[in-house]
Write a protein that binds this DNA or RNA. Structure first.
Lengths: 336, 336
DNA sequence: ATGAAAGCGCTAACAT
DNA sequence: ATGTTAGCGCTTTCAT
């Protein structure tokens, strides 16, 4: 069961290693038809498979990319990964995944491990806390594409959904259903372009329909503390008729919150979420959501990265925007 | 930005490559305290990181394992993967994932790619259609552990849940809630131990409570055709009061089916599922399920595999059983 | 206690 | 059109 190597096929074919290597790498220009055929035969006979490790050592290419995400387990994330992985496999690349669990320190460490591993490139949904490092890496020639997140301070090739339009359309739908007091639930958004865009979409839709933007209706949620008491204040004080969440984590927490407070959706209040939910149509109230094309995001990100790897010289940064689509279900009531 | 290599630290430390290599591999036995310190310093100074590819070429060890699953995207699977991945990363292993989408041919190909990649071992949730190949690989010395599935015809180290007890406890719960006519929805189970065990658990519980086992109440579902007309026949003819599904895919399809037929859970019929469902408590009817410890399954599988890799000689096969737990929610009605 | 040297399996510049 | 040769960066046997 000794594995057969290039020298074995060279010997058996009566040629040198180099010729076999030429063959393997598709450089047939100066090769006689005869030897080409012979080598082909011998390779099949011997069932020879080149050792990618030896190849990597020589070429400094591993044909693997690194992928840094928050948590592979998420409904959104796992589908994006599938898109990336499928595209990569089709193109003879492997992917190695690192989970950061939202920790910038782990993110940083993941980058350095991936570099140590000599991956050919990295796709990252970054926290925004390592922008300086990321910039450095890019300047050093590392191929990187970012997805899902966007930061004004970081000039990097990116693929994400058209959040602004997505939020605009959703808000418009709410308005056209008669809602005027629409509360927005978002994470801190001023420093994060991809969050700010959603808020902009919301505001623009209001403005376009001559509804005054009320900052008090924008509730800042954060992952560690969740929905706090001041949210109840918002509800009490402003009585919004609809709640628009900017992230599935918020949607889910909100739904639990409302269930606990015994507030009925959509009878008492309408809910519209960003990001598709698993088993959405089996929920107590099937939730209307702005859906992102997760699989396509992954595919595009992978496509862009492999392109960058193949064109290392090119320092240009690109931004790819994929459309969202509104999936209308039963969580928004028509009013008036 | 040239990367520093072993020779650089050797030179700077005034020793030979071999000595540095000894240091790197923790063989300090014959090393003077002095050189040890010096090498340590220089490595830190130079920020030297050994190249794992060169190392792999020499040692024939990649410190990566392959993982073959049906679809990374599943709720169950992604959590298992996380368990595997966390354990591996903690132990300096990387994991490369292959999705088979339930296709035995892709499964087979994945195995061969993984072998070509020189992974140190493989974790597989296998289809059962490549058992001969798997057996061969094991005989050739490949380290493999199987998870989630079990086949009598394949002697292989395996980690899975205690399906029999899980199904037993669930059935018992149903019986104690007054149910006597409990239909079982399963895939073809006679050739697959891990499915047969669930059926056995169900039957044993019935027997223990002196309820006759009626084969007609066992409905054979399959992934490609889904729930067919004959299921309605079963419902009509035998009027089961409870439905016990053996897999989350079946549960989800069943729930959709019942919703479509306007059959209410649990008022018209009780439902109990195998495998946890996402957002379970937000469902129209929160479903009672037999939950598997997905993360732990992953951890255990990884632990077992890394152990096997470290003890290549040992040909013994082990079977690790993890307990299930019943999560009682609102989908099962007490009757009589 | 440390070093010299061979070699892991391949690629690629250069020679012929 | 094909072969020779020198590495890629490391580990490991064998000397010393």
């Amino acid at each position: 069961m000794k594995s057969v190597k290039i020298i074995d096929v060279a010997n058996k074919a009566g040629v040198s290693k180099s010729t076999v290597s030429q063959y393997l790498n598709g450089r047939y220009e100066y090769m006689s038809k005869a030897t080409k055929q012979k080598i082909k035969r011998v390779i099949e006979d011997l069932n020879y498979i080149p050792n990618p490790i030896a190849r990597s050592l020589k070429t400094d290419k591993t044909n693997t990319i690194g992928l840094i995400v928050r948590d592979i387990t998420g409904y959104f994330t796992s589908s994006v990964i599938r898109g990336i992985d499928d595209y990569c496999k089709q193109n003879n690349y492997n992917v190695i995944i690192y989970n950061t669990d939202y920790d910038p320190a782990i993110e940083k460490k993941s980058i350095s491990i991936l570099k140590m591993l000599r991956v050919d490139g990295i796709i990252i949904a970054s926290s925004g806390h390592n922008n300086k490092l990321l910039k450095e890496e890019i300047n050093n020639g590392t191929s990187i594409v970012q997805m899902h997140m966007e930061y004004d301070s970081l000039d990097i090739s990116t693929v994400l959904s058209d959040y602004k339009t997505g939020a605009y359309e959703a808000t418009k739908y709410l308005i056209e259903s008669g809602h005027k007091k629409i509360a927005l639930l978002t994470q801190e958004y001023k420093s994060v372009r991809s969050r700010y865009d959603r808020v902009l979409g919301y505001e623009n839709a209001l403005i376009a329909h001559e509804i005054e933007v009320n900052e008090d209706l924008i509730y800042i949620w954060n992952r560690s503390s969740g929905i706090e008491n001041n949210f109840e204040d918002l509800l009490d004080k402003y009585s919004p008729t609809a709640l628009f969440t900017m992230h599935s984590s918020i949607t889910i927490e909100l739904l639990n919150y409302l269930a606990e407070k015994n507030i009925k959706v959509p009878d008492d209040i309408s809910v519209l979420g960003f990001d598709e939910l698993p088993l959405a149509n089996l929920l107590k109230t099937p939730i209307t959501v702005v859906n992102q094309s997760t699989y396509e995001i992954g595919q595009k990100a992978a496509e862009l990265l492999l392109w960058k790897i193949a064109h290392k010289g090119n320092k240009q940064t690109e931004k790819i925007l994929l459309p969202c689509n509104l999936i209308i279900r039963k969580s928004c009531k028509k009013i008036n």
